[in-house]
Design a binder for these strands. Structure first.
Lengths: 187, 187
DNA sequence: CCATCGCTAGACTGCTCGGTCTATGTTGGC
DNA sequence: GCCAACATAGACCGAGCAGTCTAGCGATGG
């Protein structure tokens, strides 16, 4: 991957996840990444939208990679949820509550309308969910139950993130994690 | 409340909750509500931002009113959660997955940064949460537990909404509701 | 019948947006 | 050493943005 291309995705991801797609101007992305406009349109002929799609794809990839890393450590499901909660909390505090979920941020703005970005978000969620469900199955959860659990985990974590960021308080993340652990405990 | 003012809030709320704050131009709000620009700035001297604040406030008020209405019917907590799920599902389908949560949509775009809109969203969430917690307490839930449950319910419902809208599928709402019911059942 | 004032009406402004275009490096194969 | 191909660089453009301003409408009270 070309360094300029990568740098643009990194910077744009950070900005989009903090304030959404429409709130961020190209000028801000270009200034923060110290990239001229010509380079952006060289690497992303489709402009802002294509850049955002690349951000979404990379975001899904890195989420799945993180999931694989956890599954390789042999952690059980409860351990995974606790770990996720701790990592999320640390991340929120480290970024001063500025960072949020890229998929939620962009997804909200596309609404239910069919648009390339909305579609990209849908696919990203779906891929992460499938990877999570697959791991749950490997941990002994039945197929249908694993799919449901994966969707439930992602939905409630995303919601907790929204609330926590608004309140500048990670409590919702911990509360939701407790509930998810209880759900897992009871099968 | 002046009809023009009310109409502006109604139309702006619908648009903001579908696509967020920055994605909506004043021109769109004015065209859809058949209001000239002068009227908007007469009723909302602070412009777009003041209008959005009014939307957020009204949104919180109507959420709390809906809560009060449910509590007046004598429904228990499980009944309330089931009812909320059904209503949400019907709403999503009726609006063709276009509508979403106003507070989540605007909240995402303000991120953790301190801004008038971010503050308005924080207060709106807090008020709804307190009203919900108060009702839970009236249903016999202990004080601290009621506060936690209220935050958990709001967080996971908001997240379910995000996911459901992206997928054009209300399953996440039902899944999260099931989990919340289980949580309530076990105290 | 008129003066007042809340409200409507929309032309206008300065600005920033995303996107295009041409010119200029820079680099690797021959 | 030379030529493509790749990549950087930023001036430039039309469109659309939020917001301002002046003019006029219409009901209400004197």
């Amino acid at each position: 991957m070309h360094p300029t291309r990568s740098r643009l995705i990194t910077v744009a991801t950070r900005l989009f996840q903090q304030r959404g797609y429409h709130a961020i101007g190209l000028s801000e992305i270009l200034a923060l990444s110290e990239t001229p406009k010509g380079s952006l349109y060289h690497h992303f002929p489709g402009g802002k939208q294509e850049l955002a799609e690349a951000c979404i794809r990379r975001n899904a990839e890195s989420s799945m990679a993180a999931l694989d890393r956890v599954s390789a450590t042999g952690l059980d499901i409860i351990g995974f949820l606790r770990n996720l909660s701790d990592v999320t909390e640390a991340w929120l505090q480290r970024t001063d509550w500025l960072d949020g979920s890229l998929l939620a941020a962009i997804g909200q703005e596309q609404g239910g309308a069919s648009s390339p970005l909305g579609e990209a978000v849908r696919i990203a969620y779906q891929r992460i969910e499938m990877r999570l469900a697959r791991w749950l199955m490997a941990e002994g959860v039945a197929v249908a139950r694993a799919r449901d659990m994966a969707a439930t985990i992602i939905a409630s974590q995303e919601g907790a993130l929204v609330l926590a960021r608004s309140r500048h308080d990670a409590t919702p993340v911990r509360l939701v994690t407790d509930m998810l652990c209880a759900m897992v405990d009871r099968g």
